[in-house]
Design a protein around this nucleic acid. Structure first.
Lengths: 185, 185
DNA sequence: TAGAGCATGTAAGGCGTTACATGATTTC
DNA sequence: GAAATCATGTAACGCCTTACATGCTCTA
């Protein structure tokens, strides 16, 4: 029995979307297309095979064209195993080394954690995210002062990194405030 | 003659690094490893084939272990065609639709433009970047007010997008100021 | 009935990852 | 002389992209 390798981010996100509401592949495509903030537009060749993989793993189940016309349509929903996999993804600790790239994945987790995780779990996720961001910012700031950088563009680019991640950090802190003020809504 | 598909971002970045100073594959690896802001660590299986592809296209040339010991080593440098491809990458207009994801690529272009592009070309690149960011921010802000979003986490996540990209925009403006004040250094 | 959109999928090809392979050189 | 590091590469495998294929359903 070979290790069943972990799910990709894309697969986890599909799981999260289907946890909110069962959908067909086409509806998922429309969702991605309609959301301007999500700048990823999965192709058919990525989406349908991913759904098949999740189904083969027993994380999704599909019901064939139940309602309305006879137009074939596979509406997917999570199995209990799928829900478990999704919840475990949401509960994964924030890996500090990943905060420099793909902040998007963390944001996705935050969005999907609503109503799945307990409010205090969400707050501790944000705490982890905040300290990962602090560490990352400190690392760049240190590199900026100590490393011998040729020219002025590299320094400016590092300042960009600091300022953008500082903005993320500020956001995390204000989000914590917001959620503390109105824990459930 | 089939279209020679464009270079990947990774290949372009390799070209940019080698334009600064000819290096071996191993030195490039060390560079990626040593830079904390660059959160990508190319594997051997990505790096060496990429260098070979660039060489086969005639964009790089390699000299075999010239100096010191007889340890085999391939030191790459740009051919004239490679320099042309690199400059053309740097001069590519900022595609507004790409500004939501991979801001990193734009930053890379900015860093590598120093001393390759004329100061006014750099400034116009930053202008393009600024207006792309403005558009993106406005799009999210509009979506935030008009779209029916379930729950409070999605709204918070969109605010994150706005604030982070606003920080980028502020940085662009201050970078323009800095560069205008000290055009060459 | 012709066309546009719905809805799912497949095939070829490219690139990256992980892991392994292979020598040469320096260090203890 | 053994071990670590230098330095380059290859093989298996997986996923995504582009492009195409296939039917069904609604509208003009």
């Amino acid at each position: 029995m070979q290790e069943p390798r972990g799910l990709t981010d894309f697969e986890q996100i599909l799981l999260g979307l289907l946890a909110r509401s069962p959908s067909s592949g086409y509806e998922l495509k429309k969702f991605f297309a309609a959301t301007p903030a999500v700048v990823y537009q999965p192709s058919s060749g990525a989406l349908y095979p991913a759904l098949c993989r999740l189904e083969r793993r027993g994380l999704l189940s599909a019901e064939q064209a139940p309602s309305a016309g006879k137009r074939r349509q596979r509406r997917y929903q999570l199995t209990p195993a799928g829900q478990a996999a999704h919840a475990s993804w949401l509960r994964q600790p924030v890996e500090p080394s990943t905060v420099g790239a793909d902040l998007g994945t963390h944001l996705m987790r935050f969005v999907m954690a609503e109503r799945v995780l307990a409010p205090e779990e969400v707050l501790s996720f944000l705490d982890e995210l905040a300290s990962a961001l602090e560490t990352f910012i400190a690392t760049i700031a240190d590199y900026l002062t100590t490393a011998p950088l040729p020219g002025c563009h590299p320094r400016l680019a590092l300042r960009h990194g600091i300022e953008v991640h500082q903005a993320s950090l500020d956001w995390v802190r204000s989000a914590v405030e917001t959620l503390r003020a109105a824990p459930s809504n």
